[in-house]
């Protein structure tokens, strides 16, 4: 359990909610809101996994595997 990550995530979420309030006031098109929510939700989900110590396989490792599979590196 890593409380530092949690606190930081909460700060970022509050900032994100401010953005969200602005979107609603200005009646932004739906695609903007959807992209915003997707990115925020993805970050929060991964962040939570990191905070509780269950680290998903990182993109760096994915890229490494893909490159190894295609035979670019050994």
């Amino acid at each position: 359990m890593n409380s530092n990550i949690l606190i930081i995530l909460i700060i970022f979420t509050i900032l994100g909610l401010y953005d969200f309030r602005r979107f609603i006031r200005k009646k932004e098109p739906a695609k903007v809101v959807i992209v915003h929510i997707i990115i925020m939700a993805l970050s929060l989900a991964i962040g939570l996994f990191l905070a509780i110590g269950k680290r998903p396989i990182s993109p760096s490792q994915w890229i490494e595997r893909i490159l190894k599979m295609t035979g670019v590196i050994k």
Binding site: F12, T13, L15, G16, D19, V32, V35, H36, I39, M40
Partner: peptide, 8 residues
């Protein structure tokens, strides 16, 4: 609009 999300 996307800065906060991308920064997070």
């Amino acid at each position: 609009k996307f800065t906060t999300a991308v920064a997070t």
